[in-house]
Amino acid sequence: MRFAEIFTAGLLALLSIYLMWKSAELDIGYIKGEGPGGGAWPFWLSGLMLICTGFIAFNWVKRVSPPSRSDQPFLDSYSLRMVLLVGGGLFGFIALTGIISMYGAMVIFLLYYLKFLGRHSWSLTLVLSVGIPIIFFIFFEALMRITLPKGLNFTEPFYNYLNTLIY
């Protein structure tokens, strides 16, 4: 945890410098008759962020903040595994949206989470993985008229059929 604290502070300092540099693409000073330039607001705020990371580092050296005193690992093997499994599942969900539509990806994600991570019974898993996307479909497509991504072309006949049901 102690290492993670200073590592993160360093990373955030770099982020602040990047944001300052990026803001400086626009005018960061005061333009007469126009007020502060377009880059001024984010530039000086990023500067303040950089100063904050300095204070965080100072507190780290002095061991003032709780994370800078802790010997606990930032992520132990269990946590790392959980974060990778859940985060990876989410990554897969979002990535699959572009291919098999958001509803399709939802089915796969729910199957993965409920059965593989949650170890629930097949009946519960199937009811939820199929039922939830249907509820979402009715709410978004039929009631709210918001269309969610439909993926690649091959899903088109399927959704065309569903659309004939709701329109």
């Binding site: 859940v86 599942g89 989410l90 969900f93 979002i94 949206t97 958001m102 939802m106 994600f109 729910l110 989470y113 409920l114 991570l117 949650g118 170890r119 629930h120 519960l124 939820l128 939830i132 979402f136 978004f140 969610l148």
Partner: peptide, 13 residues
Amino acid sequence: TVLAPLIFVLSVV
């Protein structure tokens, strides 16, 4: 383990 995936799905949607 049922609530969590529901919240994730809700969040993404």
